[in-house]
Structures are given as structure tokens and as C-alpha cells.
């Protein structure tokens, strides 16, 4: 991935990236969704890269180079409850001399076991602060989670984790402002991955409709199934438009992308749920086995639905931005 320039898709050229932009990153994410590719792409190449490139300092530049070269991976420690709510932070950062002491918990940290570095938002007297620490830092305990999609995730406990002052990214109190563009980039890329997943699940389903025979005919000749498949195609088309739109706006006017990103993530979440549920149902008993990938799509779609904000979270953002 690094050799093909994928890891550096959002890394600036001066840090050896290919800097192809969000729409290009979405093309990759969509393919990964289709193939159920397990990769730190979203956490590292999309979110960490988007975050670090805002800082424009030598240290961040060094990290971006490593990301582009495929030598450094990141995880974002975001959630503290069962639902995504990035601004509600209980984990504390207490100023001690030049550095900070972190105490608290983060849950459902995607790539939390294997990523070499962790980005974490903490509450301090100066407001929300964003820290960048090695996953081997003393006092950081990781509990691996046995995820339904078999991917890397962990719960993290920060027990008197001592950090030096340079672990703080940007100014104290500006943590969420730094994090927000990275979250939006991640949400949009996750939407792209999810639409890829929906398309693949749908293609497999329509193939099955043309192949499986019952009552002497292919099951795809039953109108009850045809109309459900056609409806699903319509849903996928609308969602695809929303994902393309989000990529375009992130590349041209990122400061105004929140609405576009939330429409894309909400739609992608919803469409994938429909695609995998219909997929399993239309495969009959076969859909309940691992003979086809449908079950894997379903499990991945469920995790992707919760990560970085579920349908309700993003529909809420949309409602707020649209004046209600």
C-alpha cells in the first residue's frame, strides 16, 4: 500500500506523500470495503494524516513521512461510552511541571492493540487537549476486544500515564478543533468503505437471484424479490451520490464539509444495514453460513455503523445544521 502511494494519499508532497486528496482516498476505501480488506488505512492514512498535516511543525512532518512510507501506524482513542460522543471527555490531563499526567478510560479503540501510536483527547484545566503517545507508554493498559468483525480493537486504561510537554499537539485547549477535521475525514472515508461493502453485498445477492432455482425458475424471477432488490439499488445510488459529494467538498471546501460528511455517513450506515439484511434473507439458509461472504459483510457493517458516529448521531448533526 505504501509503495503504491496509498498510505500517503493525504500526506503533503513535502512529506513524501502523494497528496491525492479525499476523493481519491474514498476510491481506495470503497475498494477495501468491497474486499473486506483489514487495514490501518482509515485510522492512519486518513485520520492521523489529516490531523498531523494541520500542525506544520518538524515533528509532525517527520511522522507524516513515516506514515507515507508505511512505517508508522496510529489509533484514535475516542469513545468513553457505548456511543460516539467525542466532545464529552472524562479522561483527565493534569499539568505536572512541563508535562501531563493522564487518567481515565477509552473504549472501542479501533487498531488499539497494534497501532504504534495513540491519539487521545483529554480534559484539562485549559480545556480539551490532544495528545500523541507511543502505545508502549508506561501506565497504558490495553485489553484486546474479540470483535465480531475479527478486527483489531481494544479498551484502554490510562493509569497515571506520564507524558512530556511535547506529547501535546497544538495549543492546550485546541484539542477538539484539531481533531474535528480528522474525524470528518475518517467519517467520510468510512462511509466510502461502507458503500463499497454495500455494493459488494448487493452484487453477490443479485448474482444469487440469477443463479438459485426454486419452483423450477430462478428466484430472481419472483417479483417480490425483484422489487426489494430494485429498491436496494435505489438506496445504494443515493448513498453513492452522498459519498461522492462528501469527497468533493472535503477536497474543495473542507471548512464547510460537516453537513456533506454527516449525510454520507448516515446514509452509508443505513444503506449497509439494509444491504446485508436483505442479502442474508435472499440467500436463504446459505446466507446464515460462511459459504458466502454475506455474514462477514453483515458483521463489518455493524461495526462500521457504530464507529465514528451511528445513524442517529449523524442525522442529529444534519438536523442541527438544517435548522431544527
Amino acid at each position: 500500500m505504501a509503495a503504491a502511494g496509498w498510505a500517503g494519499v493525504l500526506v503533503p508532497e513535502e512529506a513524501d506523500g502523494s497528496d491525492m486528496g479525499h476523493a481519491a482516498a474514498h476510491v481506495l476505501a470503497r475498494e477495501m470495503g468491497r474486499n473486506l480488506t483489514v487495514s490501518p488505512f482509515l485510522s492512519t492514512a486518513v485520520m492521523a494524516a489529516t490531523l498531523l498535516r494541520q500542525l506544520k511543525d518538524p515533528s509532525s512532518n517527520g511522522k507524516l513521512k513515516e506514515i507515507a512510507a508505511g512505517e508508522l501506524t496510529y489509533a484514535l482513542a475516542l469513545d468513553e461510552s457505548a456511543k460516539f460522543s467525542p466532545e464529552n471527555v472524562e479522561l483527565t490531563a493534569e499539568k505536572r511541571g512541563n508535562g501531563y499526567i493522564l487518567n481515565g478510560k477509552k473504549r472501542f479503540v479501533i487498531d488499539g492493540c497494534d497501532a504504534e501510536r495513540i491519539l487521545v483527547l483529554a480534559k484539562s484545566d485549559e480545556g480539551l487537549c490532544l495528545f500523541d503517545l507511543a502505545n508502549t507508554t508506561k501506565g497504558l493498559e490495553k485489553t484486546p476486544l474479540e470483535m465480531i468483525d475479527s478486527r483489531d480493537a481494544a479498551d484502554l486504561v490510562f493509569d497515571n500515564v506520564e507524558l512530556s510537554g511535547d506529547a501535546l499537539l497544538g495549543a492546550a485547549g485546541s484539542g477538539y478543533d484539531l481533531l474535528k477535521p480528522a474525524l470528518e475525514a475518517g467519517q467520510a472515508a468510512l462511509a466510502a468503505e461502507t458503500i463499497g461493502l454495500s455494493e459488494a453485498a448487493f452484487a453477490q445477492t443479485t448474482d444469487y437471484l440469477k443463479e438459485r432455482k426454486q419452483f423450477g425458475v430462478t428466484i430472481g424471477s419472483f417479483q417480490a424479490l425483484q422489487h426489494r432488490a430494485a429498491h436496494l439499488w435505489c438506496e445504494i445510488e443515493l448513498t453513492h451520490s452522498a459519498v461522492l459529494n462528501a469527497g468533493r467538498i472535503l477536497d474543495t471546501a473542507p471548512d464547510t464539509a460537516t453537513l456533506a460528511v454527516s449525510v454520507a455517513k448516515a446514509r452509508a450506515t443505513d444503506t449497509a444495514q439494509k444491504a446485508v439484511q436483505e442479502g442474508v434473507q435472499m440467500h436463504g439458509g446459505m446466507g446464515m453460513t460462511d459459504a458466502f461472504d454475506m455474514g462477514f459483510y453483515m458483521k463489518r457493517a455493524r461495526v462500521a455503523a457504530e464507529w465514528l458516529g451511528d445513524y442517529g448521531y449523524h442525522a442529529g448533526v444534519v438536523a442541527q445544521l438544517r435548522g431544527f
Partner: peptide, 27 residues
């Protein structure tokens, strides 16, 4: 207003879909 939570939820869903449809018409 939109004080009824069920109505509000339905309105949110319709809003998301309306925007996605507009994007599709443009595309």
C-alpha cells in the same frame, strides 16, 4: 413544533434522504 420525538426522528430521516436525493439529481 417538533416536540414529538417520533415525529422529530422521522423528520431527521426525511431530511437526510432529501439531501441525498438532491445530490443524486445533480450527479
Amino acid at each position: 413544533g417538533l416536540s414529538d420525538p417520533v415525529l422529530r426522528g422521522d423528520a431527521m430521516r426525511a431530511e437526510v434522504d432529501t439531501l441525498a436525493l438532491e445530490m443524486t439529481l445533480e450527479r
